[in-house]
Write a protein that binds this DNA or RNA. Sequence first.
DNA 1: AAAGAAAGTGTAATTTTAACACTTTTCAAA
DNA 2: TTTGAAAAGTGTTAAAATTACACTTTCTTT
Lengths: 238, 238
Amino acid sequence: MATLKLNKHMSIKNSHISVDCVIFGFDFENLKVLFIEQKIDDTLERELRLALPGDLVNLDENLDSAAYRVLTELTSIDKIYLKQFRAFGNPNRLKNEKDQFWIKKVRANPDARVITIGYFTLVKMDDVAPKASSFAGNTHWVNIDEIPELAFDHNQIVDQAMETLREDLEYKQIGYDLLPKKFTLSQLQRLYEVVLGAKLDKRNFRKKMKKTEFVVPLNEKQQGVLHKPAQLFKFNKS
Amino acid sequence: MATLKLNKHMSIKNSHISVDCVIFGFDFENLKVLFIEQKIDDTLERELRLALPGDLVNLDENLDSAAYRVLTELTSIDKIYLKQFRAFGNPNRLKNEKDQFWIKKVRANPDARVITIGYFTLVKMDDVAPKASSFAGNTHWVNIDEIPELAFDHNQIVDQAMETLREDLEYKQIGYDLLPKKFTLSQLQRLYEVVLGAKLDKRNFRKKMKKTEFVVPLNEKQQGVLHKPAQLFKFNKS
DNA sequence: AAAGAAAGTGTAATTTTAACACTTTTCAAA
DNA sequence: TTTGAAAAGTGTTAAAATTACACTTTCTTT
């Protein structure tokens, strides 16, 4: 009969379940995703790898709470649209050589099978000053179409998140938290374009948005631009 | 330092992750879900509780494979639309009294926290002769609007599956595997109606379906009905 | 032959979508 | 103060999709 020794870092505290957060941001130009550098404080082998922010779920913790915890620790944001979109459980998802190297440094129980639950969220980039934390080294915003090879199966997770985001934007109406309180229709259109990956017709887009109860005009204009300032709008949450 | 003893039934073989399958079927009348009776071979306490078919995921097993395994063991069906729709991980999801009673009988490690991954699938009821298996006692098809209180958090899981099914039927075009190879437009319409929970206009429905490449007419009519026999159609998979 | 039962069928009004190009407003630089 | 650059803002028409709506046909059974 095998025995398995537990210490305080191990299964008493943590399950073999993690959450990973795909944090989308928008800089009025491109859609971006927030990554962390894997912390490897080693002498050699200082190869930089990016990964999604994530952490093991505590044994007494909800999945949603864990995702929320990762998010707030990293970004100090509190309220947020946070959506679980898929579980990733390939038994070999952490088994390649580089992944193992990192895991052995960091995890108390490196051979354990860990499945992860993917969450995605939308944030205003200005609100976020990501900081190193218990699970994160430096952070980087990366354009959605310039994402390099990531640690683990994180490329797959990002792809899936992107697909879900696209569907949500099309069918439901998100868009909120990617823009500041006040925004122009051109900014909103650009957001739709980068998420949907398609160019939209300006007049038709504006026509549709104005029919929506969802976006309401303010008595205020854009300032500090070197061209005709645009009318500002806000979201009508309800 | 705590130690945890493992035997062959325990963590060497199994993770603390399970899959649960919401198997939808259609009897031309109502949408149904397949449940199993919890096996409790006890003298007293023979209270019947229904649960979703599900099982622990083996350590070397993909989530999808585990769901597939549960499905085939129970129904002997092989090919199938099988969709992961959500992870359920409330730490207390197995903690109520009745749930604990069952778990202590059956699980090697009853206190473990188990999260479950929900899958749903659509089957032709005729193809399915569910049989008792390693994890299942008797089975029951239950109308979607007559589902009693279930074991664990399975009511929540079914609700979520239903919601996802609805969206998929509306936006994508499933419907396949709920109907036999040959079917009438009225049967298809009834299926849409019970899934969407709304009455549809016959002429508009037929107009739309005929425009779809998706449903193609056969040179064949319904037989054995006591009224005008309907034209038969099939799905065009591609 | 009649009655019952569900199949099958068309039109008109409304709404939504798609395609398409020029004028206006502001700021900054000459 | 004029000029140019830059993006904002604006309407129309055609095509397609959606909705509402009721009677006739075909087959079976008695």
